[in-house]
Amino acid sequence: MSSRTSTVAHQFDDAEQQRNASTLGIWVFLVTEIMMFGGLFTAYVLYRSSYPEAFAAASHHLNATLGAANTIVLLSSSLSMALAVRASQVGSRWGTVAGLVVTIVLGCIFLGVKGYEYASKFEENLVPGPFFDLPGAEPQSELFFSLYFAMTGLHAVHMVIGVGVLATLVVMALRRRFDADYHNPVEIGGLYWHFVDIVWIYLFPLLYLLGRH
């Protein structure tokens, strides 16, 4: 009932059971995330193998430098997240808060860069739909940009949710809700964040780098 006396929820017998349940819970949830992105990856594999030239040509209109830079930003955020989890495990409150804040800032930088890329696609008329205009390209290039926006868009939505989760964790950490014995939520949030990072690890080469040679 009250979290003041105990951090173990009433349905659990002890802290270990609670910990096992939440760890398994987030991993099962991540499986559902794999399958959700999986639908888009299936579409990608099918169309990429059907129209390799059109996709390679369209991919040249993405900014590989920004994509690579954003990859580094996201990897850095995974590092700071791992450091935050580590700090929470050793019971360092300020270490946890610092790691989480750095992660949030890096996440926002990533989203900012992404927003800039989206904006330039709008200016270049590369957004699929009635205004799509890529002179001299095959019609399938619009398919590429549909997938580009769907995949990176879904990823960005996950980033926004992640930033919200981490912000909640910062508030909880400041309210002294965590210590060396109880820091489950930080670990759970970390696992989610790393998963979102992994999705990008695949998106970057598949979308930005194919057919560069």
Partner: peptide, 20 residues
């Protein structure tokens, strides 16, 4: 999750004309 993303793609195609 697969039906969710499929329905989402369908919705995007219908709403914004992006053609998956």
């Amino acid at each position: 999750p697969v039906i969710a993303i499929t329905i989402l793609m369908l919705g995007l195609e219908r709403a914004f004309g992006i053609g998956i």
